[in-house]
């Protein structure tokens, strides 16, 4: 209704609203904790959910697959090499006659292990280092960040290769090679977060209440930076899986009798033109892993970011 200027506004057009005591303070929207809100927003993101489904499927494939398949991933059959996928061998056999399905389960498991372990090591080292550096600031921060800058300046690939040749091949050597400079990214990130957070009131409050440095870092700063840290991890894992694939290309991937998606893709790459399925199958698995982690990572980042809250 549009009011004409001529119309008079009179007293009787209004009516007082009666408020009980405390009613003004009531929260009408149902209370939602931060994490439940995150979950809610994550679930609304279709891609993120798809990513999660992919990851769960990969995990299931890696751990349940071997129970379904009658084949041993290491068992060779020199008379059944390079067989295309069939009812007997669902994904065919490789150049030593090993069942590719069983091998893929196994390779997925190894690759996931490499990725997760590398991410965890990055996490622990990076969080401690970055936390200390950011929290104390000043000279400590300067020195610690100088060291990080040095590590940043070394081409990661040279360090990784040198290290692998020095300590010899091995699953843990590969993981170590991936993390030796990888934690730097996490450390920088955590430091940045801590620098921001430590100026906030709740830290001041904690300090006023006499909390120790360690307590503040562990109880207040890290949990508040957790969102960013988790997002970073979801990108570190596929990064490490990818890095392992690159090392496989140079012949420095996980050693025998282990197999990873990287070593399988590299083996298959050699046969690209004649047995393309040997490349396509592990390549699809790598791509799925990448997609899964990236979708989940993106979804988490959006869900954790209060600024995007609507």
């Amino acid at each position: 209704m549009r009011l004409s200027s001529a119309q008079e506004i009179t007293q009787d057009m209004f009516e007082p609203l009666r408020l009980g005591t405390g009613e003004g303070e009531a929260i009408t929207r149902p209370p939602i904790s931060y994490w439940r809100e995150v979950v809610r927003r994550f679930r609304r993101n279709r891609l993120a959910v798809a990513g999660l489904v992919i990851l769960v499927a990969l995990l299931a494939f890696a751990f349940i697959g071997p129970l379904v398949s009658p084949w041993d991933p290491r068992e060779q059959s020199l008379f059944d090499t390079n067989k295309v996928p069939s009812r007997e061998h669902w994904f065919g056999t490789d150049n030593l006659g090993r069942d590719m399905f069983a091998r893929l389960c196994y390779g997925t498991k190894v690759s996931l292990f490499v990725g997760v372990m590398a991410a965890l090591i990055d996490l622990v080292v990076g969080v401690i280092y970055g936390g200390i550096s950011g929290y104390f600031g000043g000279a400590v921060d300067d020195v610690m960040m100088r060291i990080v800058d040095i590590l940043y300046g070394i081409p990661y690939i040279i360090v990784a290769i040198l290290l692998l040749v020095v300590i010899g091949p091995g699953l843990w050597s590969v993981i170590l090679a991936m993390t030796i400079t990888g934690w730097v990214g996490m450390a920088r990130l955590v430091r940045g977060q801590v620098l921001q957070l430590k100026e906030q009131e709740f830290v001041l409050a904690a300090r006023a209440l006499g909390a120790s440095h360690l307590g503040i870092i562990l109880r207040h700063l890290i949990p508040n930076a957790m969102g960013v840290i988790i997002v970073q991890m979801t990108f570190t894992i596929p990064g490490a899986i990818f890095g392992e694939a690159f090392l496989s290309f140079i012949g420095l991937g996980v050693p025998l009798p282990l197999a990873s998606l990287g070593t399988m893709a590299n083996d298959g790459y050699q046969y690209l033109r004649i047995y393309p399925y040997q490349l396509i199958i592990p390549a699809v698995a790598i791509i799925m892993t990448m997609l899964g982690f990236n979708f989940v990572g993106d979804g988490l980042r959006d869900a954790l970011d209060p600024k995007l809250r609507r």
């Binding site: 060779q76 020199l78 150049n95 030593l96 012949g251 420095l252 025998l256 590299n266």
Partner: peptide, 14 residues
């Protein structure tokens, strides 16, 4: 540690 060397070694192993 080349691709071929690994393949050949695995044949012996088997």
């Amino acid at each position: 540690d080349s691709q071929i060397a690994r393949l050949y070694a695995q044949g012996i192993q088997e």
